[in-house]
């Protein structure tokens, strides 16, 4: 609040009303509804529901489908985060260093941000298609039989590749702006103190980039968990089958295909808790950063 803020009462409430109404109806209500439903079991024919306590949650721990999705999500998240961060960091460091063509490189490396995940997924399907895919053909010439949608890990590899490809631009943009925020004088001081470019990177640049990196870590985990839905859906062509699936995809499959509102809601609640933990971690960190700067 500004110290000379307006003293009106009615007007600001009017200003807040649309936002509050929208979040009450489309955020708090559904969120509360999810928590509530996670304790009930719905009759498959739509006749009423029974309170089952934590049954829906225990059911999850016994479901191989769910455990598989959980395991895959962990692997998927780790790999996507690692590769997209690593590649983007390399590219950002180079783009920050070159003088000629810096702008062009920046444009060429970030525009993919604007492509929708399912469109990226479709491109993936075209490239990895079992019979006609370009990459499938290349792999075949090396003697590898890549089978999208049939072989579990082949499908997973396609998903990861596309997800990394789609995420590189965001990471690149943040790393680059983080690098550009390092004061010129600090770089120059480092140049005088240390003649090796590589050790300068690890001693000076990398620690100064750590806050950006940590922030991006959270962003990438969130991305892998949630925003890859469109990629997963297109790569498995809407057919869960025996394909690798992420947790969010399971929420969707069990809720909309399986009609299991209780189970799907329990999964939602688990995800909510996961996101809350991530946020708390992020905040604790941000708080620290505020102290130091």
């Amino acid at each position: 609040m500004k110290r000379a803020a307006f003293g009106h009462i009615g007007f600001p409430i009017l200003l807040l009303l649309p936002q509050l109404a929208i979040i009450a109806i489309f955020f708090y209500w559904p969120a509360a509804y999810a928590v509530e439903s996670s304790f009930y079991l719905q009759d498959p024919f739509g006749f009423g529901e029974t309170f089952v306590g934590f049954d829906n949650y225990t059911r999850l721990t016994n479901s191989t489908n769910y455990i598989n999705a959980l395991n895959f999500t962990v692997v998927f998240t780790l790999l996507v985060t690692f590769f997209s961060l690593g590649i983007a960091l390399l590219l950002a460091v180079k783009a920050d260093k070159v003088i000629r063509g810096a702008k062009t490189y920046r444009t060429l490396l970030m525009w993919v941000y604007a492509i929708a995940p399912p469109v990226a997924g479709l491109i993936g399907v075209m490239l990895f298609d079992q019979s006609r895919g370009t990459i499938t053909q290349v792999l075949a010439s090396f003697g590898y039989d890549f089978r999208l949608g049939v072989n579990y890990w082949d499908t997973a590899a396609a998903m990861i590749t596309v997800s990394v490809w789609k995420q590189i631009p965001v990471n690149f943009i943040f790393f680059l702006s983080g690098l550009q925020a390092i004061p010129r004088s600090v770089r120059e001081a480092a140049m005088i103190d240390n003649r090796s470019g590589t050790s300068r990177f690890w001693d000076i640049t990398f620690p100064l980039l750590a806050p950006t990196g940590f922030f991006l870590l959270i962003i990438n985990i969130t991305y892998s968990l949630f925003d890859t839905f469109g990629i997963v859906d297109t790569i498995v062509k809407g057919e869960p089958g025996n394909n690798p699936l992420t947790l969010v995809y399971r929420v969707y499959v069990d809720g909309f295909r399986g009609g299991d509102l209780g189970g799907s809601s329990a999964q939602s609640v688990v995800l909510m808790i996961l996101v809350l933990i991530l946020t708390i971690v992020q905040f604790r960190f941000l708080e620290r950063r505020i102290h130091y700067t």
Partner: peptide
């Protein structure tokens, strides 16, 4: 504005940043 519940409103609004639509899709 000098609103008494501005902080409360802010936190109510801010909380929505925590949970993406994908998580509460079915409800």
């Amino acid at each position: 504005f000098r609103l008494k519940f501005a902080t409360l409103a802010f936190w109510m609004i801010f909380t929505t940043l925590l949970l993406p639509l994908e998580v509460r899709i079915l409800p």
